[in-house]
């Protein structure tokens, strides 16, 4: 794949399906940046728009700013790091299978519907700059039936659905978070230890079969 050197402001599908190479984006890209990304590396030196990393399979996307709605939609692998905030419906439908565990890390806060229908993978919201409130909007984890969401906050999000279980992080959780926070600080600065010293909630589904009791054969 020929690596394009410069991209237009608002250009869509940058790095779509890329399997290798590094792409640096200096102006705000259009939607679906790194869709189906399959191993490449994308660094955005400003904010990104909607559907960043849609259905991405491998590789890394780093956004030095905020990312729009549906960031990491249906991710299957790889990692997305967003320095500031994420929009609505981030990380929905993330999956995992054996060693393919996608990661979405957001430094600030996310909008509503974070991790809706989440079936796997790890979402970490650090809540930097919004320490006085929950760093996510409404309906976090609705329909969640796999994976885990870590929130660095003392405030539980509003309207948590029934099938989401809230817990304090165990040592295995901290081991999982540590390298992600490390990578975040490597990219954007900050002190990993002071971030890790904050209070976290772990959100996990309390069933992997949320519809089990819903039906009767006819």
């Amino acid at each position: 794949m020929a690596v394009q050197e410069t991209y237009a402001l608002g250009q869509r599908y940058i790095g779509c399906g890329a399997q290798w190479g590094k792409i640096t984006v200096t102006q705000v890209p259009g939607n679906a940046l790194g869709a189906y990304l399959d191993g490449g590396e994308i660094e955005v030196l400003c904010s990104a728009q909607d559907a960043t990393g849609d259905t991405m399979n491998a590789g890394e996307i780093v956004v030095h700013g905020s990312a729009g709605d549906a960031t990491g939609y249906a991710m299957r692998g790889g990692a997305i790091y967003v320095r500031d905030n994420g929009g609505y419906r981030c990380g929905i439908h993330m999956k995992e299978y054996r060693d393919k565990v996608p990661v979405l890390v957001v430094g600030g806060s996310c909008g509503s519907f974070l991790g809706e229908y989440q079936a796997g993978g790890t979402i970490l919201v650090l809540g930097i700059g919004c320490e006085d409130r929950a760093p996510v909007g409404n309906f976090c984890g609705t329909g969640m039936h796999g994976g885990r969401i870590y929130l660095r906050t003392r405030f539980l999000p509003p309207n948590l659905p029934e099938q989401v279980a809230v817990a304090e992080p165990q040592s295995a959780d901290l081991e999982r978070i540590r390298p992600l926070v490390g990578r975040f600080c490597e990219k954007f600065g900050g002190d990993p230890e002071s971030l890790l010293a904050g209070h976290f909630f772990v959100l996990t589904p309390n069933t992997s079969n949320p519809y089990h009791q819903l039906y009767v054969n006819n």
């Binding site: 939609y73 519907f113 079936a119 796997g120 079969n209």
Partner: peptide, 25 residues
């Protein structure tokens, strides 16, 4: 590519399609 025994849930809408423009995307 989902774990054994886990429900496979396809939601009613595509959560990134709310318009013909989104479908076009």
């Amino acid at each position: 590519m989902i774990p054994e025994g886990s429900d496979a849930i396809s939601p009613a809408p595509h959560h990134d399609i709310y318009s013909i423009e989104d479908l076009r995307q």
